[in-house]
């Protein structure tokens, strides 16, 4: 078992070990959807939601089904299936209760299925041997961290609309550079605490 307190895991996964800025996971939807603050918030919320529940469900599946049968080599395919099913469920759920968000997220909602940050978080949970409480804290923190990163980016991109960007760097080019800069500033947080 991992001895780190859950609060530490939670805070660390938002700031020092931000899944996007430290591990660079989930970049594709980050680049595409960060053009507007409203959609960025929407996707951030959706990712947080999916992250908490998929890590929790996959924790159960992994430790109560796969491990007892010594089938942990199946973990990748099972994790992906669980994530896919959950995103399907979420899609129906959002369509039912917030059509505006549903239309705003458009094709990006199904894209969460293949968002590597989600699978990444699940795999980290296994590698770092978190218990259930830690897993939920980690999933929640990572989701919030991802949402924070995309929100920062959306805000910056709004400002960047007015700036004179070299022709060759327009679009994803400048976004990757800016992401790198944000990531470096986040390294400043590592002095506070660090996760292994």
């Amino acid at each position: 078992m991992n001895p780190t307190p859950v609060l530490t895991i939670f805070v660390a996964s938002i700031f020092t070990n931000n899944i996007l800025l430290a591990s660079f996971l989930g970049l594709c939807s980050f680049i595409v959807v960060s053009n507007r603050i409203e959609t960025a918030i929407g996707l951030g919320v959706a990712v947080t939601f999916v992250m908490v529940f998929t890590t929790a469900i996959n924790y159960g599946v992994y430790y109560y089904i796969l491990v007892p049968f010594h089938l942990d080599f199946l973990s990748y395919i099972v994790f992906i299936a669980v994530i896919a099913a959950f995103v399907q469920f979420l899609e129906m759920f959002i369509e039912r209760f917030s059509p505006t968000l549903y239309y705003a997220l458009g094709i990006f909602l199904p894209l969460i299925t293949v968002n590597c940050a989600i699978l990444g978080a699940v795999l980290f949970m296994v590698i770092r041997k978190y218990n259930f409480i830690q897993t939920v804290g980690f999933g929640f923190g990572s989701g919030l961290g991802w949402a924070l990163a995309i929100l920062l980016m959306a805000g910056l991109r709004k400002k960047m609309g007015y700036s004179n960007i070299p022709e060759a760097l327009k679009g994803p080019g400048i976004i990757l550079i800016v992401t790198g800069v944000i990531a470096m500033t986040f390294i400043g947080f590592t002095g506070i605490l660090n996760l292994q």
Binding site: V61, L66, F69, A81, A85, F93
Partner: peptide, 29 residues
């Protein structure tokens, strides 16, 4: 035996997920 077990468990999990989705579609959609 591991092979059969793997197939069985996999099948079980996938079946459970499908049933879950079908039920939530009933309720939500």
């Amino acid at each position: 035996i591991t092979g059969l077990l793997a197939v069985g468990v996999n099948l079980g999990i996938f079946l459970a997920l499908s049933i879950w989705l079908l039920i939530s579609e009933r309720i939500l959609v």
